[in-house]
């Protein structure tokens, strides 16, 4: 089974990577398995200066998923370059840096600094948990195109724009990122959500709102990728609620060329490794000879082809 996939800036031995924010900078998970087994690692978001993030509680359980409002806590781009990236480089795994900011200038600064140390950027215009920046860039196609263009101009590596599901028309946002010069899309970030504790009568999260992730988000993400795939010419990294190899096949069929696994790492810190092991057999089970063959398959499927399959 050929699980390799070539994407701009990324030569992946398999299409599986941990999603940004769920894997830190890899150190903690490297104690459970060699990170070289992964297709790539997407690092936790980097901002210009160090950030503390939101008050606790920052996470809450919800049916079929979870809410988080970490608020982009990170040690700042310089510290990430000096302290974290050398560790990941030594693990022999492609690195994608998640780039965030409050202003266009901050996004540009972070991208400029970090891009010479990694294989690709994931431009985070979709974090719902910060007061300034974040999702405001991801909800307005004019702002999204502008920040993408300016980051692409300074970046030494391909830029994947991470889209927010908190929009009325995802295709408009995808096309804006493509016009801005994105080499690919990352779909999707979390959906803005809230839980209220009946006892305290207040939101469970200290931030009030948080981002919903997990299985509950998966059908939304599949729908959005399925809508975007035929409308853009750039590849998509799909994410949202992946827990099984069959979930990955679903993402590939919708139009994703690779996938990221997020919240499931909390259920099981070994999930990415297990999915890497299981994917070939699952692809074979559904009649595929390679990962590439499955990408966008749902868009090409005909009644005749379905009848001919065993």
């Amino acid at each position: 089974m050929n699980t390799m996939i070539q994407l701009p800036g990324l030569s992946l031995k398999n299409p599986i990577m941990p999603a940004s924010g769920c894997f830190g900078f890899g150190r903690e998970y490297a104690r459970f398995y060699p990170l070289a087994e992964l297709g790539a690692v997407i690092m936790k978001a980097a901002t210009g200066e160090k950030r503390y993030g939101n008050p606790t509680p920052r996470v809450a359980e919800s049916t079929g998923g979870m809410l988080n409002a970490i608020g982009l806590q990170n040690p700042g781009v310089e510290s990430i370059i000096q302290e974290e990236i050398p560790f990941l480089k030594a693990q022999q795994v492609p690195i994608i840096a998640n780039v965030a900011g409050s202003t266009v200038e901050e996004y540009v600064e972070v991208a400029e600094k970090i891009s010479s140390h990694v294989d690709a950027l994931e431009l985070n215009i979709s974090c719902p948990n910060v007061k300034e920046g974040g999702v405001q860039f991801g909800m307005d196609p004019v702002l999204a195109e502008d920040v993408t263009r300016r980051v692409v101009q300074v970046s030494r590596v391909p830029v994947y724009v991470k889209l927010s599901p908190n929009v009325s028309d995802i295709v408009v946002m995808a096309k804006a990122a493509e016009r801005g010069g994105a080499s690919g899309l990352s779909m999707i970030n979390t959906l803005t959500a809230m839980r209220i504790d009946p006892s305290s009568r207040k939101p469970v999260l200290s931030n009030g709102t948080g981002g919903l992730s997990g299985a509950a988000l998966k059908p939304v993400s599949i729908r959005m990728i399925h809508q975007v795939y035929p409308k853009v010419a750039i590849p998509i990294i799909g994410m949202g609620g992946i827990e099984t190899a069959a979930d990955i096949v679903e993402y590939l069929l919708a139009g994703a060329s690779a996938v990221a696994v997020g919240s499931a790492n909390f259920k099981n810190p070994l999930i990415c490794r297990e999915l890497v092991e299981q994917l070939p057999e699952t692809l074979h089970h559904y009649g595929f000879q390679s990962v590439e063959e499955a990408v966008g398959g749902a868009h090409r499927e005909s009644v005749e082809a379905g009848l001919l399959r065993p």
């Binding site: 830190g24 936790k44 606790t56 920052r58 996470v59 809450a60 970490i70 806590q73 909390f266």
Partner: peptide, 29 residues
């Protein structure tokens, strides 16, 4: 005690402000 995510130090769900230069500690690790 605090609500935790990963429980191994990667997700930054269970932090507490600290007096050192870093400014935070992760309760889980």
């Amino acid at each position: 005690e605090e609500r935790m995510g990963c429980g191994i130090g990667a997700c930054f769900a269970c932090v507490v402000p600290s007096h050192d230069e870093k400014g935070y500690k992760r309760i889980c690790c």
